[in-house]
Write a protein that binds this DNA or RNA. Structure first.
Length: 484
RNA sequence: GGCGGCUUAGCCAAGUGGUAAGGCGACGGUCUGCAAAACCGUUAUUCGGCGGUUCAAAUCCGCCAGCCGCCUCCA
């Protein structure tokens, strides 16, 4: 069928064909490292992680570049405020970022370049732009001349006339045109700087991404991604800088993800509702967060609230529970030759879903369909081997299921029985009763029940319930879990 | 003001011309001493409203209503 991707540049789904057959160059705007990462960052990173994983699974040789912006006004301001060296601050948050990404099960990109490691690339790119009269120097600053690049606005769909009349563009004495933007900023007193042909200073925000992406992927590459807010001005400016400098088409496919809202409100520092990844993961399993982030289409807005994240956790448990049932069926082995459609077609249907602009909600629906089919076999077969498919085909189902759920979506990494056990016991440390005491009471109740003393058994069950402990009686005896 | 997007069951959410995926919840059932958990089943004659195009529309076009994003640092 072939991969189709919605391209912001053309506003259409287009068939994906890389510049060099079999190889993909992908650049995604990373984070400015001045604070902890929030759930909005998580959405973007997880989306492109899934895209990266899918391209790899499709057989492409992928060079995936995700940068760190480690020099910027926000970093300098924060460092000054905290009395910390700006470089130390940036390094500190790069480490924190990596901790969060590892926790989220995000695959490391091929290259994670830092802006400050690429000053020579940035300088030569700026020099080229000045030579071609696409940029000019004023008092140690270098500005890009927007009017020198006629396609300006092609990504965001903006017309330069509209932008000029929109009164929100800063008027700056140094700019020949209000739309011009800084490529190089002259250092103010006490600010970090690098030497340049225009004096000491530091790179503007947009130029670093042009420099780093072209450094690793060439002047024309396949995919560039980021949050939808970066479309303008950041990505628009990247196109202008890069294409003005090289005369080549910069990027084939622009992919932008939608925003995460918090309880129907925009997440912002002023509203005080910014949710850090670190804090969320104290309450929520990382895979549940991934499932949540992938449960609606990547371009749609996504609302984070107690219900939505709870649903994701429950859904994940459902998948693990089916995986456990599948493993039991494999161990039992059977004689049935055919598989239900939900299991035999899983691979090709999942691929179709992903090929259709990375339709992860549809993919998840297929995984739930497969889960139900597995559970149905499990429930109907019982101990009868004549109702269970043969071992080999069940093993193929598991391979396919994990091939997509695990390799591509980054879910179902754990052994199911361990996952389910942990999910049941999570939060036990916050209770007013020790684990040993719980175990003792459960044991006491089991003995009472064995003696048909159900009155005492129920009494103990109620007592434990007051502590927030639920008893579950199964064929292998009684177990307990923390009530939600 | 300019540009773009969205509106599908109680809630979340796929579906861009061929007659409504999936999840949560709710309800019914299996299991159980009774529960719980798990599992199974049921749950939109209809896609914001009104017109139009078509053999056929949630899907295309027009108008109206409501919501949202970007235009300024932002994933």
């Amino acid at each position: 069928m072939g991969l189709k991707i919605y391209n912001t540049l053309t506003r259409k789904k287009e068939t994906f064909e890389p510049v060099h057959p079999g190889k993909v160059g992908m650049y995604v705007c990373g984070v400015t490292v001045y604070d902890m990462c929030h759930i909005g960052h998580a959405r973007s990173v997880v989306l492109f992680d899934v895209i990266y994983r899918y391209l790899l699974k499709s057989g492409f040789q992928v060079t995936y570049v995700r940068n760190f912006t480690d020099i910027d006004d926000k970093i300098i301001n924060r460092a000054n405020k905290l009395g910390e060296n700006w470089k130390d601050l940036a390094e500190r948050f790069i480490k924190e970022f990596s901790v969060d990404m590892d926790a989220l099960g995000v695959k490391r990109p091929t290259i994670e370049p830092k802006a400050t490691d690429h000053i020579p690339d940035i300088l030569s790119l700026i020099s080229a732009l000045i030579e071609e009269a696409h940029a000019y120097e004023v008092d140690g600053d270098v500005m890009f001349s927007v009017s020198s690049f006629s396609p300006y606005g092609k990504l965001s769909g903006k017309k330069t006339e509209d932008l000029v009349s929109g009164a929100r563009v800063d008027v700056d004495e140094k700019k020949k045109d209000p739309l011009d933007f800084a490529l190089w900023k002259a250092a103010k007193k006490g600010e970090p700087f690098w030497n340049s042909p225009w004096g000491p200073g530091r790179p503007g925000w947009h130029i670093e991404c042009s420099a780093m992406s072209m450094r690793y992927l060439g002047s024309s590459f396949d995919i560039h991604g980021g949050g939808s807010d970066l479309t303008f001005p950041h990505h628009e400016n990247e196109i202008a800088q890069s294409e003005a400098a090289t005369g080549e088409s910069f990027v084939r496919f622009w992919i932008h993800n939608g925003f995460v809202n918090i309880r129907s409100e925009k997440m912002s520092k002023s509203l005080g509702n910014v949710l850090n990844i670190r804090d969320i993961l104290k309450e929520v399993h990382p895979e549940a967060l991934r499932l949540f982030l992938l449960s609606s289409h990547y371009r749609s807005p996504l609302d984070f609230n107690d219900t939505s994240i709870r649903e994701a956790s429950v859904g994940l448990e459902r998948m693990y529970s089916a995986l456990m049932a599948l493993e039991e069926l494999i161990n039992a082995g059977g004689i049935v030759n055919e598989l239900p459609e939900e299991l035999s077609d899983l691979g090709s249907k999942f691929e179709d879903a992903m090929d259709d602009d990375f339709n992860t909600p549809k993919g998840l629906a297929l995984l739930f369909d497969a889960s139900r089919a597995i559970n149905r076999i499990h429930a109907e077969a019982g101990p009868n081997k004549d109702k269970i498919p043969i071992k080999e085909s069940l093993e193929n189902v598991k391979k396919t299921l994990l091939g997509w759920a695990n390799e591509v979506l980054g879910l179902l990494n754990e052994a199911p029985e361990i996952f389910i056990e942990n999910a049941r016991r999570s939060g036990a440390k916050d209770l007013n009763i020790t684990k040993e005491e719980i175990e003792r009471l459960v044991q006491e109740r089991s003995e009472a029940r064995k003696a048909k003393n159900f009155k005492l058994g129920d009494e103990i069950r109620n007592r434990l319930l007051e502590y927030g402990i639920l008893i579950e009686d199964g064929p292998k005896g009684s177990t307990w879990r923390v009530r939600d």
